[in-house]
Amino acid sequence: MDDISFMVEKGDVVSVLGPNGAGKTTLIKNICRIQNPDSGFIFIDDTNIHNYKKREFAKRVSYVPQQIVPSFMTVFDSILIGRRPHINWAVTKEDEDMVWDVIRLFSMEKLTLTYLNQLSGGELQKVQIARAVVQNTDVIILDEPTNNLDVANQHAMLAMIRSIVKKNNACAVMIMHDINMALYYSDKFVFMKDGQVVNCGDKNIVTPDLVKEIYGIESKIMYNSGMPIVVAKKSDFNNEEKLNEIGWIKKK
């Protein structure tokens, strides 16, 4: 990955978009110090992230990974882990109260004492995001936050992330695949391809040409009460020709 450079300001929700294998996850893992860049620097408030102590850094940046590891822990205890950077010796009442508040924020009261390995994929995803919220950081990094969620929950989750970011004057960087969801809920966009940033900026940079360059498909932009919607052309996904060319037919 090279030639990556962009800036995120306080109060911004930023979507990182691009085809599979474009280096989106590598980028955000570098931002969270889960991986280290071979060269180049990442700054938060003019301080190189590698100059922070591990615990101090964890107080500023939280991370929601793509994969979910279910374990033998209750939802409450699992969200409580997010307080780890703030806990010196023992968990305090304040930590537990914060977990309660976030559980209510995400309407998961009924699941409080359920073990993670008994939850559905969508519920697990909510627990992950709740854990990052309870970490109470200035920057939240999310790897496909809408994974495993149904349409209603996708909207609810992204709206919640946006509200939290705006209210706390924090910022969120999230990897998105649904370009329209991204248009709906974010302020800035970073388009990546082959390990490079192709373009970044606000809504206005999203054009049929950019979509063609990034994903290689024809599209047009329509407007629904002022909101842009990217619609792909149907003909791009007609594979009859390819099937005929390879001769793939169901064997009888």
């Binding site: 893992k29 990974p65 374990s71 822990m73 780890r84 854990r131």
Partner: peptide
């Protein structure tokens, strides 16, 4: 507890 949630999460929580 954080490692139980996955090593990436543990790292992002400041665990070496």
């Amino acid at each position: 507890n954080s490692i139980e949630a996955g090593s990436d999460i543990a790292k992002s929580l400041g665990v070496d």
